[in-house]
Simulated scan of single mutants.
Amino acid sequence: MDSAAIIGKLRKLHEDAEDPEIGRMAADAELFQALLYLESHAAALKDDTARRTAAVQRVMLWEYLREQTDLHQAQAIEHARAAGAAWAELAPALAVNAPSAAYNKARRLKAAVLTDAATEDGPVRRTPEAVQKVEQQAAARAAAERRAQHDAARRHQLLAPVARRLIEHRQGLDDGDDVTYWLDQIASVLPNCQTPTQIVSLETYVAAVVRHLRKAEAANGRLAGMDTDAQLAYAAAAEVVP
């Protein structure tokens, strides 16, 4: 939400209504102070439509400000805990009477952070149990992503040398258009092949080279003009792709 732009429009309503104290209104970026001014000077708007529009916009901006407060308070709690603050120390700051109540309130505020992060299941219920479930799901997704990255790295260790040999000895491979095309694709992705997606692409290209070489081999009974190094590169590639 561009809160400053909305405040600017509300300021214009007061200017058009010739609010005599509009010069005292806070800057558009100072949301809280600007809202306090608009609230205390609502009577300056004489037109019913303008007054209704301004009031609805103020409702929306207070809601936005409340949501932002939850997010920033949750972050402050995380910083305090990281700095060694005990729940007993945080209880007065959170306007509760016991460490357990401070913990539970912090978990409810955490729900605001998780909701802001656009979880897959929509807004998170403000209970410690709901927050814990979402955090466990997030941890499981992160673990799965780490496993995928680890598997991709292992796959790259096997695939990259094979792809490199195909490029090094491409002159000895079949020079059909299909083989040439896929070798060009390998040559383009190989130098910067790091992400799982790039590694999958590289594997696809190597598999395509092997597939078309097999087709040529089946059609001709052999691969004409393939020297020993090219044969070894082809055999290595055939071992690492389906």
Rank of each mutant, 00 (worst) to 15 (best):
R211S: 12
Q132I: 03
K12H: 15
T115L: 08
A95R: 13
A142Y: 12
Q185H: 14
A142V: 06
T49Q: 14
D184V: 10
A224R: 12
D178V: 14
Y234R: 11
E67C: 04
A88G: 06
L31V: 07
R211V: 06
A230L: 05
N192D: 10
G172K: 05
R154C: 10
C193T: 00
A216T: 12
G172A: 06
L114F: 03
A207H: 13
T53I: 15
R141T: 08
V131Y: 10
K12R: 13
N220R: 06
V96N: 05
R222T: 11
L36K: 07
L213K: 06
A142W: 12
T49P: 04
G225N: 09
D121K: 15
G176D: 04
A34T: 05
I77M: 11
V113I: 09
L158M: 15
R126H: 07
Q75C: 13
N192E: 15
P99F: 03
A42T: 06
E89K: 07
N104I: 04
A91F: 04
Q157G: 08
G225Q: 12
R165Y: 13
Q33H: 08
A82V: 01
A29Q: 15
K12I: 15
V162I: 11
L38Q: 00
T197Y: 01
V240I: 14
A91M: 11
G172S: 07
W87D: 02
L223Y: 14
A140Q: 12
A218V: 12
A148N: 09
Q149E: 13
V134T: 02
P128R: 06
Y181Q: 03
T119I: 05
C193V: 03
D70I: 05
P196F: 01
Q57N: 09
S201M: 13
N192L: 14
A153H: 14
A138G: 13
L232D: 06
A148H: 11
M226W: 11
A55E: 02
A98H: 09
L223V: 15
A95D: 10
D48N: 03
V124R: 00
L232N: 06
R211A: 08
P99S: 08
D121I: 12
A224K: 15
L61T: 01
D116N: 15
V179G: 02
K215Y: 11
E168A: 07
W182A: 01
R81F: 06
L61I: 03
A42R: 06
R155A: 08
A91C: 12
V131D: 13
R211Y: 12
T115N: 01
G122N: 14
D174R: 10
H79Q: 11
G122P: 08
R222N: 15
A235F: 06
A160E: 15
H212Q: 08
R214F: 13
H41P: 02
T197I: 02
L31A: 03
A138N: 13
A88M: 06
L38A: 02
D19S: 00
L223E: 15
T127L: 03
T119E: 09
Q132W: 01
L61Y: 01
T195M: 02
